[in-house]
């Protein structure tokens, strides 16, 4: 038989099948529940507030703070150079390029750590790396970074070093006089919220 006919007999039925079945739209979770539990147990998703403050003071370009609270809360107060991705929209295609990349360190923050941890869990389960949670959230940030209290004289010298760092970081980040917040609301400050950077990073590869 002519090879062309053999090819047609083999390929046309396959083509008919693939044209008839609906496309597979299921998204795979790339991390199983036990793997996720393991990561949560080690606490490796947390980024220490002092480390974040240090990167902020040094204008580290690899740091990308992501506010997962609502746009209203974001407009009222946000950390310097943070962008707003409300938790409800975290799976939107618009943000995939920001959340799924390996160039920048994304740090999620919310008032406490609940929403930020939820954002981390969702993105981690999709297999994204480089996303972290600001330990303690904004509440801890206000109480301990911006409103650093001088330790009593019986403390070890590391505590004083930490205090000195926090005091200077707080001055550089426009804190100092801010008072610690209660559990659910972050205090308003005069920081102007920057606009989210929508510039998309081009995927590279191909032949």
């Amino acid at each position: 038989m002519n090879p062309r006919v053999i090819l047609a007999v083999a390929l046309i039925p396959l083509g008919l099948i693939i044209a008839a079945v609906p496309a597979n739209k299921t998204k795979q979770f790339r991390l199983t529940a036990p793997e996720l539990l393991q990561e949560t147990a080690t606490g490796s998703q947390f980024m220490q507030p002092d480390a974040v403050a240090d990167m902020l003071v040094k204008n580290d370009p690899s740091l990308q703070l992501i506010d997962v609270r609502t746009p209203e809360e974001f407009a009222a107060f946000s950390l310097p150079r943070a962008i707003n991705i409300p938790l409800a929209n975290i799976l939107s295609d618009e943000y995939t390029d920001i959340l799924n990349q390996d160039a920048k360190t994304n740090v999620f923050y919310s008032n406490g750590t609940v929403q930020a941890s939820e954002a981390w869990m969702l993105t981690r389960q999709l297999g994204y790396t480089n996303n972290y949670v600001l330990e303690g959230g904004l509440n801890y940030w206000f109480a301990n970074i911006l409103g650093a209290k001088e330790p009593s004289s019986v403390n070890p010298s590391e505590e004083f070093a930490k205090y000195d760092f926090r005091k200077s970081a707080s001055a550089a980040l426009g804190g100092g006089s801010v008072v610690a917040s209660d559990n659910n609301t972050a205090p308003a400050a005069a920081t102007k919220p920057p606009v989210a950077n929508k510039a998309k990073k081009k995927v590279t590869g191909g032949c």
């Binding site: 046309i12 083509g15 693939i18 008839a20 079945v21 496309a23």
Partner: peptide, 8 residues
């Protein structure tokens, strides 16, 4: 059109 139909 769907990818499958285009394939056919």
């Amino acid at each position: 059109m769907s990818d499958g139909l285009f394939a056919l």
